[in-house]
């Protein structure tokens, strides 16, 4: 199992506008690392850099011993990094079965292994097992989110990058999603979770990073955030940059 190290990464989409300004963090194996922060802090951008959708302008991304910032997404996937984007990552005209097969693309040559993995995924997601031959267009939002997650678990990654997995879901369904992330950790998968649902994310996390304007503002184990979690949530909800306040009060770092 490998550790992900993001080291002073600078990245952005447009010339001269950096979204990440020298961000550093570490995601340890077999643990859930939550990244929280307000909208526009660069959370999703961080995951895009880690999966290789966006090339960093400076800094280093390492997975275990290996620097991976020059690799294509499919190469990173083969190293054991999987990515569940915030938007849909399923295929409207495919059945659930076919979607999971696509998820198993990188291990397609090991037929027996793939079959075992699919069976395992259906065990993890019993709700999907009954929908195997159903087209994904008829699935509910929650089922689609589950399917996106299931699709990335087919290859049994060592690190799962998850972007806002419960945005727009009913609380009951959201709960199921978090349960599955916990279940993944039990299976030995490291999770790097980016979330607006701060309370729940921190609730399952082993280690938490609070980021703002492209930098880590504060980090620590879950317990370190328990005291002022309410404050962070409130500030994030009203859209105030929590970091600005924080510095004024001199409370953080």
């Amino acid at each position: 199992m490998e550790t992900l190290v993001v080291d002073r990464v600078v990245a952005g989409y447009h010339e001269g506008i950096d979204i990440l300004n020298g961000l550093s963090l570490t995601a340890r194996p077999r643990s859930i690392t939550a990244v929280i922060g307000p909208n526009g802090a660069g959370k999703s951008t961080l995951l895009r850099v880690v999966f290789g959708l966006l090339a960093p302008r400076a800094g280093r991304v390492a997975f275990g011993e290996r620097a991976i910032q020059g690799l294509r997404p499919d190469e990173r996937k083969r190293l054991g990094i999987a990515y569940v984007p915030q938007g849909p990552s399923t295929f409207p005209h495919m059945t659930v079965d076919e979607t999971l097969l696509v998820g198993g693309w990188t291990i397609r040559h090991d037929r027996a292994g793939l079959r075992r993995r699919l069976a395992h995924v259906y065990e993890l997601f019993p709700a999907l097992a009954g929908l195997r031959r159903v087209r994904t267009t008829v699935l509910s939002g929650g089922q689609l989110r589950m399917l996106s997650l299931a699709k990335e678990l087919v290859v049994m990654p060592s690190l799962l990058l998850v972007d806002e997995p419960t945005a727009g879901l009913a609380p009951r369904v959201a709960g199921e999603v978090y349960e599955l992330l916990v279940r993944s950790r039990e299976l030995g998968i490291g999770v790097l979770l980016v979330d607006q649902n701060i309370t729940e994310a921190v609730g399952i996390a082993d280690y938490v990073y609070l980021i703002g304007t492209g930098r880590v503002q504060r980090e620590g184990p879950r317990g370190a955030f328990a005291a002022d979690l309410g404050e962070i949530v409130r500030e994030s909800l009203v859209g105030v940059d929590p970091t600005g306040h924080a510095r004024e009060r001199g409370g953080w770092r």
């Binding site: 996937k77 399923t90 295929f91 005209h93 076919e98 696509v102 996106s148």
Partner: peptide, 16 residues
Amino acid sequence: RSVAQNRLGALAAGIN
């Protein structure tokens, strides 16, 4: 088909 239906989804699956 996966690339046709969702490029990001295909990319996440490790398709080149």
